[in-house]
């Protein structure tokens, strides 16, 4: 079995910051907007190098989304930065009308998604954002798993013409994907080959899926782990090809089971090849204060939960 290791942990938001800084150097049309969270979004390098292309909006996210939409008229490629909660739920109608329905080339970049935001608690821990964003016609939805992938995704979405929701997080997590990778929107990545179960994960849960697959291997279960960084458009082929072999699937995400990756996968399977599926996700609940590890343990979003879900789904084959 192919195994993955890491030498350091880094936050995915820093990957965003590095990607944005790179874009600042290579693409003169890229502009950035922030609603009073420059440090949290790691936008400092872009701002230092391109002060004229940065717009500090203040604590006014609705205005930020509208201004971003307006900036596209004139050929700019705006990247907005704030927490995932304030990037989606707070500004849903602005995104819906001024960006998605208007077909504007805005990149909505959202940090601190999910439970791993930690101690700030449920007001800031959005677990519904993937659902909100994927329901908007024409919106691309991406949730990256580590620093390198987030950096690559940030660079790649500038080349994509259309609105994108890019979701990443706060905590330092293992860096295990290649440096300087090419990011292909809508193309899943098979991380391990396996025959017994397909594990499809997104964001911070990808590493947990790899950890789970190691333990499962020791138990004699061969898992095929797929990194689905793009929830919409979903790489249906990589999922269907895998379940044709394994006959069962576990989906894993730092999001409510309603509206998330799991639901998109379930729809694909129901349409093309009904397959037993277990969902590793939050169970229609809000989060709470705690350390990221405590929260992921309490709400069942780690390798242990993936192993339990796998054992359960294997019995349903």
């Amino acid at each position: 079995m192919k195994t993955y290791t890491y030498t350091e942990k880094k936050d995915t938001r820093s990957g965003f910051g590095a990607g944005l800084a790179e874009l600042g150097r290579t693409n003169p049309n890229v502009v950035a907007l922030c609603a009073d969270l420059i440090g949290s979004l790691k936008m400092n390098d872009f701002i230092a190098e391109n002060p004229e292309r940065f717009f500090q909006i203040g604590i006014a996210e609705a205005n930020m989304m509208g201004i971003a939409a307006g900036l596209t008229i004139g050929g700019k490629i705006p990247f907005t930065g704030t927490f995932a909660n304030f990037s989606t739920g707070r500004v849903y109608d602005q995104i819906r009308q001024s960006i998605a329905y208007s077909g504007k080339n805005v990149k909505i970049c959202a940090s601190h998604a999910g439970l791993t935001l930690g101690e700030d608690g449920a007001t800031h821990q959005i677990l519904e954002d993937i659902g909100l964003m994927k329901m908007l016609p024409g919106m691309t939805v991406i949730n990256t798993c580590d620093y390198n992938q987030t950096k690559a995704a940030t660079i790649a979405i500038a080349e994509h013409n259309g609105p994108v929701y890019l979701r990443f997080g706060r905590p330092k997590v293992p860096v295990f994907t290649p440096e300087n990778q090419t990011f292909e929107i809508g193309k899943g990545i098979k991380l391990t080959e396996g025959n017994d179960v397909t594990i499809v994960a997104t964001g911070h849960l990808v590493w947990e899926a790899l950890e789970a697959s190691k333990e499962l291997y020791e138990k004699g279960i061969s898992a095929e782990v797929i990194n689905i960084h793009t929830i919409k458009p979903l790489d249906e082929k990589i999922i269907l090809d895998s379940v044709a072999k394994t006959k069962c699937i576990v989906t894993a995400e730092e999001h409510n089971y309603l509206g998330g990756l799991g639901e998109s996968v379930a729809r694909t399977l129901a349409t093309h090849n009904p397959t037993p599926q277990e969902f590793v996700a939050t169970q229609d609940t809000f989060g709470e204060s705690g350390t990221p590890d405590q929260l992921m343990e309490k709400y069942g979003l780690n390798s242990k939960s993936i192993i339990s879900a796998t054992e359960k789904v294997l019995k349903r084959k």
Binding site: R53, A62, N63, G66, I67, G70, L71, I73, Q97
Partner: peptide, 23 residues
Amino acid sequence: IASGSLGQGMSVAIGAAQAKKLN
């Protein structure tokens, strides 16, 4: 730009104005 849901046009106009300045 699409409009109908009220209150969004001023922000859009500002964005377009700032794009004009950049250009």
